[in-house]
Simulated assay, not measured.
Amino acid sequence: MSRAERLLQLLQVLRRYRRPVSGQTLANELCISTRTLYRDIASLQAQGAIIEGAPGIGYVMKPGFMLPPIMFRSEELDALVLGMRWVADRCDETLSGGALGALAKIAAVLPAELRRELEESSLLVGAPLTRPAHTISPDLLRAAVRAELKLEITYVDGSGIQSRRVVWPFALVYFDQARVLMCWCELRADFRNFRSDRILSVEQKMERYPKRRSTLLREWRKLNQVASRTILPESDSMAQ
């Protein structure tokens, strides 16, 4: 690995940590000596990176430092292309356009060799299985999650029983054959998951729910240690 690549990787590692991290931890992750790490941090600080800390205390990078022209390893480019192509193929028009736009922006700032590698990637997304139609715009659901707004929904379960309830939406989960809105349900006073294709109507309450969505997500995770089993939409006991 060249020194430039190592400095870029150090920046990326520092960005992952929100609290001070020891020099030894950083050195171990980069497979370098602590002496080399201290020199690299001094180099980044000289280039304008706001890295606070000292040996024996730990380091944290403050936001705002702009990365140099984007560089990616081959596996990182593969992950980007495959992920963006999946979103473009599987998601609604808004997210599909966002994925293609983001990929174009990344390609525009890549060096010529990496841009060619991105454009010629042979990682493709297979044809999707048949997906149910959705009555409710996913833009509306995503907007409610971002703004932490209550929704009043009319929902029909797998048995055809309709219910009207007020929910606090805090996440939207994407599966190949379904989207699941994760909520706190006021009717049940508990967490509930709702398949978006079974939501018949939505009224945005313009009232923020009393907790932050990040708090709700943490609480949900504590209650559901194996998340993949809990949010699967196949059974109506999970997607109520």
Rank of each mutant, 00 (worst) to 15 (best):
S2E: 05
S2V: 10
R3E: 04
E5H: 04
R6D: 02
Q9L: 13
Q9Y: 06
Q9I: 09
L10A: 05
L10N: 03
Q12S: 08
Q12F: 08
Q12C: 07
Q12L: 14
V13N: 02
V13H: 03
V13L: 07
L14R: 00
L14H: 00
L14V: 00
R15I: 06
R15K: 13
R15H: 14
R15S: 06
R16S: 01
R16M: 00
R16A: 01
Y17K: 02
R18G: 08
R18P: 09
R18H: 09
R19S: 14
R19N: 13
R19F: 11
R19H: 15
P20Y: 01
P20K: 00
P20C: 00
P20G: 02
V21A: 05
S22D: 08
S22P: 04
G23W: 02
Q24T: 12
Q24I: 09
T25Y: 06
T25Q: 04
L26N: 01
A27G: 06
E29K: 13
E29P: 06
E29D: 06
L30H: 05
L30Q: 03
I32Y: 06
S33H: 14
S33R: 08
S33M: 07
T36A: 11
T36D: 02
T36F: 10
L37V: 15
L37W: 10
L37Y: 08
L37I: 05
Y38F: 11
Y38K: 06
R39T: 07
D40P: 04
D40I: 11
I41P: 00
A42D: 05
S43A: 15
L44H: 01
L44C: 05
Q45W: 02
Q45A: 12
Q45L: 05
Q45P: 03
A46E: 04
A46W: 12
Q47L: 15
G48Q: 11
A49Y: 05
A49R: 02
I51F: 15
I51T: 15
E52V: 12
E52Q: 09
E52W: 12
E52C: 13
G53N: 03
A54Q: 14
A54D: 08
A54Y: 07
A54R: 09
P55G: 08
G56N: 06
I57F: 10
I57R: 09
G58I: 13
Y59E: 01
Y59N: 01
Y59A: 01
Y59R: 00
Y59K: 00
V60L: 08
V60P: 03
M61S: 01
M61E: 00
K62V: 04
P63T: 07
P63S: 15
P63E: 05
G64K: 15
G64W: 04
G64Q: 06
F65Y: 14
F65I: 07
F65M: 14
M66P: 04
M66D: 12
M66Y: 08
P68A: 10
P68Y: 14
P68E: 13
P68H: 08
P68I: 06
P69R: 11
I70Y: 13
I70L: 09
I70F: 07
M71C: 15
M71D: 05
